[in-house]
Simulated scan of single mutants.
Amino acid sequence: MPTPHSRSRLAQRIRQYQQARDAPRRTPHAPPPYVYSEIDEMIRLAEMWLPFGGPPEEEIFTRFGLTRHAFQARLEKALTIR
Rank of each mutant, 00 (worst) to 15 (best):
T67I: 03
L45A: 08
L75M: 05
A11F: 01
I81Y: 08
T27W: 06
A20N: 07
E41Y: 01
L50T: 09
Q16K: 12
P56C: 01
R26I: 02
R13S: 14
G54H: 10
Q16V: 11
G54I: 12
L50M: 11
R13P: 03
I60S: 09
I43S: 02
I39R: 07
R82I: 06
R21Y: 15
A78W: 06
A78R: 07
S8W: 08
A78L: 04
V35Y: 06
L66R: 11
E57I: 01
A73N: 08
D22P: 00
I81H: 08
G53V: 04
T27S: 15
Q16I: 02
E76R: 14
T80V: 01
R44G: 02
A78Y: 04
E76I: 00
S6E: 15
R15A: 15
M42A: 02
R7G: 01
Q18H: 03
F52Q: 13
E41P: 01
Y36K: 04
Y34C: 08
W49P: 01
E38Q: 13
D22F: 12
P2N: 11
R21I: 05
S8P: 00
G54W: 08
P32W: 00
W49V: 01
Y34E: 06
P51M: 04
L75V: 08
P55A: 14
H5N: 11
R26T: 14
P32L: 14
F64I: 02
A30R: 14
Q12E: 13
P33I: 09
G65A: 03
E41S: 11
S8T: 14
L45F: 03
F61Y: 12
R25T: 11
E59C: 01
R7F: 02
A46Q: 13
L79R: 08
R15E: 15
M42N: 04
A23Y: 09
V35L: 13
R15H: 09
F52H: 14
T67R: 09
Y17F: 15
A70C: 01
Y34N: 03
A70S: 10
Q18M: 06
P33E: 11
P28G: 12
Q18F: 02
E57G: 00
I60L: 10
A78E: 04
P56Q: 08
H5A: 15
H69C: 02
Q18R: 15
